[in-house]
């Protein structure tokens, strides 16, 4: 298993021994020269752009290049912007609806497709649930545009229902993932034991299965929520006039003169994302 000694690469001139060179101390087959340097560079490269973006969102000036002092000006401006408020509320509403419906559906599907023998149609159900993951978003977006455009013309109905349906569909596989993972680590005999102790199917689910899979469900819900909040491609193609979400609003802004307002909104989204991911990590890594 993993060693506790610190992996210090002792690449200094090793004494020319004859037989197999077993270097005395700190020698680890786990360290490869240069890899750590590249890795540190990678982490720097991963986070530097984000940190710059966040920093400039606090810039007092209009410029995106010259630092003119700390200010929350762009946050106030974004918060006061009616279009931003509108889009934010719509984004949250959409994510809430889509994530909730997707999680319920994914929970049921996960119960159906895990911990079982091969039953007729299992592979098909599994492929269908994961289908949104496998098709490029732009393809799904275009397909939805075609179909929903026809329905919109036909019914004259242009509510949020289209966006909610589209988001729910691609959220299902994401919600499904952690729930399935949770179920697969669960001890099957616990439910057998509950049935043995006179619990009906429903009571077994409510008293034993549900409490035990709960962390997976919450993780799935959060994941679906984040995925829905982040989506821009499908939303861009499915939305009707006046149905901007935060990502599509930002995408629209990028075509015009860019102000640090976009940075401010980005920073808020980033923070929300980091918090949710951190919570997600906690939920899925803690084993009980």
């Amino acid at each position: 298993m993993a060693e506790t000694t610190t992996p210090t690469p002792t690449e200094t001139a090793a004494p020319a021994l004859t037989a197999p060179r077993r270097e005395p101390r700190g020698y680890s087959v786990r360290s490869l020269p240069g890899f750590a340097v590249i890795a540190i560079f990678t982490f720097f490269a991963l986070y530097a752009p984000i940190l710059i973006l966040v920093t400039y969102s606090f810039n007092a000036g209009t410029s995106l290049a010259i630092w003119e002092g700390f200010s929350l000006r762009w946050y106030y401006q974004a918060a006061a912007n009616e279009a931003v408020q509108d889009a934010a509320i719509r984004s949250l509403y959409l994510a809430f609806c889509a994530a909730t419906i997707a999680t319920v559906a994914a929970t049921m599907a996960a119960l159906a497709t895990t911990r079982t023998r091969r039953f007729p149609g299992k592979t098909m159900i599994y492929a269908l649930i994961n289908q949104p993951l496998m098709i490029p978003e732009i393809v799904t977006a275009v397909a939805l545009l075609i179909v929903f455009a026809a329905i919109k013309v036909w019914t004259g109905h242009t509510s949020m229902i289209y966006l909610i349906a589209a988001h729910t569909a691609f959220c299902v596989p994401f919600a499904y993932l952690p729930i399935r993972a949770r179920l697969e680590t669960m001890d099957n005999t616990l439910e057998t034991a509950a049935q043995d102790l006179y619990a009906s199917r429903w009571l077994t689910f409510r008293r034993v299965t549900l409490p035990l899979m709960w962390p997976g469900i919450v993780a799935g819900l959060m994941l679906a929520f984040v995925i829905s909040l982040d989506d821009v491609v499908i939303t861009e193609f499915v939305k009707s006039a006046g149905q901007e979400t935060i990502p599509t609003y930002m995408l629209g802004q990028l075509r015009r003169v860019v102000t640090p307002e976009v940075n401010a909104i980005s920073t808020v989204i980033l923070m929300a994302g980091v918090i949710l991911v951190a919570l997600f990590f906690r939920l899925t890594s803690r084993r009980r």
Binding site: I101, A102, V104, A105, A106, M108, A109, L111, A112, T113, T116, F119, G121, K122, I125, L128, I129, Q131, P132, I135, T140, A143, L144, I146, V147, F148, A165, A166, T168, A169, F170, V172, Y176
Partner: peptide, 19 residues
């Protein structure tokens, strides 16, 4: 198991696979 999978299947068929 099919009944349990139905909601997920319906959503994905309507708003992903079907289109």
């Amino acid at each position: 198991r099919w009944l349990l999978s139905l909601p997920a299947i319906a959503i994905i068929v309507c708003a992903a696979a079907g289109p």
